[in-house]
Write a protein that binds this DNA or RNA. Structure first.
Length: 330
DNA sequence: AAGTCACTCAACCGCAGGACG
DNA sequence: GCGTCCTGCGGTTGAGTGACT
């Protein structure tokens, strides 16, 4: 037995709103404020579903909304947030004053997604197409020939995102603090996250400008705009371990921490700057988001061999199928 | 000028979760 | 604990519009 409809849909108007209807809502809200949207249509004299009224208000009539086009800074923030947390539009919209989740979602679907595709970046994973294809080939080929198939599967399943989601929620809950929060993955690696990202201006890298200008950078360097800061060596080399996808799921924060991987928001200039204390981390231009993600979720050193393999296969594919990327059609 | 296509964006839909009695 | 109501959310749809043929 399904839930009853919120209103009698046969007797309510649907479709575009008229100026008169807008005026009624605005007049009602100006006097009574928002709340209990199911009653507002009746009280405001509207033949609309309450849900529709709420949507009209939140997406269009709210006085704090911007109705101009998205700025390059806003676009960059959307792309970066999407890379981190995926299609959680309401969370992304909260980073953009005056924008609604609907605005952000529409802008992503109509502009930003296509822009990334044109640049050869998979808009879902934010990895280069060649990387995605390479991973797909490894997965569909059963991962034979190496011992890291579980790790590959993990990558394709966005467990990085799983962690980042948790980071994001933490960020959302701490809108005023500038302290660093720490949480842990299943390797018991503390991940330090700066909630300052909440309020600070966005940091633009050269790559960001490439994104915004629609120019194409090399695939292997084009998929992340997060600044990668190499920190000085901080202790011993990370141990080499065997990965499985579950190793990258966020664990209960109350579990003890033993290892040292950190994702740190830089305190001064950048909201989305990740720093690694992994001693072998390198931030060369060839470092793809794959590499960044790998390191963000575990021990860089352990992941790097896999990443190197990916990049090698990338080169191999390019040499074998030079037209592949140019001809790739979404 | 007319028809077609592609794009944008407002609006809808259904589900999930919280609040409350 | 359960049912109901309300709100929030993400995915999807379709009307409107401009570009193109």
């Amino acid at each position: 037995m399904g839930r009853p409809p919120c209103c009698d849909k046969s007797n309510v108007k649907k479709g575009l709103w008229t100026e008169e209807e807008d005026a009624k809502i605005l007049a009602y809200v100006a006097i009574h404020g928002v709340g209990n949207w199911s009653l507002i249509p009746k009280k405001a004299g509207l033949n609309r579903c309450g849900k529709s009224c709420r949507l009209r208000w939140t997406n269009y009539l709210r006085p704090d909304l911007k109705h101009d086009s998205f700025s390059p800074q806003e676009e960059e923030l959307i792309i970066e947030c999407h890379r981190i947390i995926g299609s959680r539009w309401s969370s992304i919209a909260r980073k953009l004053p005056g924008r609604t989740d609907n605005d952000v979602k529409n802008h992503w679907n109509t502009k930003l997604k296509k822009r990334l595709m044109k640049m050869g970046i998979d808009p879902v994973t934010h990895k280069s197409v060649s990387q995605v294809l390479s991973e797909f080939r490894n997965i569909s080929g059963g991962g034979h020939g190496n011992g890291n198939s579980s790790f590959k599967t993990e990558l394709s399943n966005n467990s990085v995102l799983t962690q980042s989601n948790s980071a994001w929620e933490m960020m959302r809950r701490n809108t005023t603090t500038t302290s660093h929060e720490t949480y842990y993955n299943n390797n018991n690696s503390p991940m330090i996250f700066s909630s300052e990202f909440q309020t600070s201006p966005f940091h633009f890298s050269n790559h960001s400008n490439h994104l915004l200008n629609g120019t194409t950078s090399s695939c292997s360097s084009s998929s992340s705009s997060a600044s990668i800061t190499q920190q000085p060596n901080q202790g011993s080399q990370a141990p080499v371990t065997t990965f499985s996808w579950s190793d990258y799921l966020l664990s209960d924060p109350v579990l003890p921490l033993t290892s040292q991987t950190q994702v740190v928001g830089s305190s001064a200039t950048s909201n989305l700057t990740f720093a690694q204390n992994e001693p072998h981390f390198n931030s060369q231009a060839e470092c793809s988001s794959q590499k960044i993600d790998s390191q963000a979720v575990g021990t860089c050193h352990s992941a790097s061999s896999f990443v190197d393999e990916i990049l090698d296969k990338d080169q191999e594919m390019l040499s074998q199928f030079p037209q592949l990327l140019n001809d790739f059609d979404y």
